[in-house]
């Protein structure tokens, strides 16, 4: 028996078991994610439908230039990063707060809250856009009707970019905080009760327990989730920026992001090569950002690093 244990510790026997556990998922990932990747080659091609991805002629980097030639390039890059960064901070803070609060309550009431917080996640942006329009529409919107009743001037919300600096985060939070809260809450109820019992013995109060146990215990999960979000920081929630804003062009200074720009730019041409170029650009930037943040995290706290 001790012999077996030391063998395991040297990592001889267990490798087969671990590989066995990892293999099915790896096969799926390779088959579904890696195998189609060579197709990205079309980002560098003059795509011809008759010739297909391999035989089409090379075009160098010319498929990329539309992303950078105009003054819009700076704006869409800035908006994309700014909004995603803000969304990450806001949604994770609110979700964490709600999860911690829920953790203080009895199981029965939690079930109800948990279910309700999840509701907005089920409504597609298309539906949310209609509800938003009912609130914000110029002549008949609920908000403008209230403003009129109060004797105030009405606002053309869909032509008022500044207002969307507030509306966008609210809409995002409304739709997304619920499921992030559930993620955190799940982690909290999974914590070892002994940790809290020990703190009880030391006479810690509720707030102290939150700061000394709950939050530190969630640290690794936060790091992972934020890292995932950073991996997507150059892509945007298209439904929010396109459908929810009704693609209203007067709002672009605030709401225009890379994805909406690419959609608009390729509307006439529908060129697969140029679409692929945009995707590749977003991927490369995200890769750089992820690697940098991983370095930073490793430096700050070796334990929490993701890779």
């Amino acid at each position: 028996m001790p012999n077996l244990l030391s063998k395991r510790k040297r990592g001889l026997l267990d490798h087969r078991g671990l590989w066995l556990l990892a293999l099915p998922a790896l096969v799926v990932v390779v088959l579904m994610q890696y195998m189609p990747l060579p197709g990205l080659i079309i980002a560098f091609k003059n795509y011809n439908y008759g010739l297909g991805p391999w035989k089409s002629s090379w075009s160098g980097f010319s498929n990329f230039t539309y992303l950078f030639t105009t003054g819009v390039a700076a704006r869409i890059t800035y908006n994309t990063i700014k909004w995603n960064f803000l969304f990450i901070v806001l949604s994770h803070s609110l979700a964490m707060l709600v999860a911690l609060l829920m953790n203080e309550l009895s199981r029965r009431s939690i079930k109800i809250y948990q279910t309700i917080f999840f509701f907005p996640y089920f409504l597609s942006w298309v539906i949310a856009a209609y509800l938003g329009f009912a609130l914000l529409s110029g002549d008949r919107g609920i908000i403008n009707t209230l403003l009129t009743r109060m004797g105030r001037d009405t606002v053309i919300w869909y032509a008022q970019p500044d207002a969307w600096r507030v509306i966008l985060p609210l809409a995002y939070l409304w739709k997304h905080f619920g499921y992030i809260a559930i993620i955190y809450f799940t982690a909290l109820i999974g914590l070892d009760p002994q940790l809290f019992e020990a703190a009880d013995i030391e006479g810690a109060n509720r707030i102290q327990k939150v700061f000394r146990i709950s939050i530190p215990q969630l640290k690794q999960l936060v790091v992972i989730l934020v890292m995932i979000d950073i991996g997507r920081i150059f892509r945007s929630d298209f439904g929010l920026f396109f459908q929810f804003t009704r693609n209203s062009s007067t709002l672009y200074p605030v709401t225009d992001v890379i994805d909406t720009y690419v959609y608009r730019a390729l509307l006439t041409l529908g060129d697969p090569g140029m679409a692929a170029a945009a995707g590749l650009y977003q991927s490369v930037v995200a890769l750089v950002l992820v690697l940098l943040s991983n370095k930073l995290i490793t430096k700050l706290d070796e334990e929490s690093r993701v890779f």
Binding site: Y66, S249, M274
Partner: peptide, 16 residues
Amino acid sequence: RNEIAACGAINAEYKI
């Protein structure tokens, strides 16, 4: 095509 993509996007914005 690059110019058309870029101009199309600008036009869609400013004409409104």
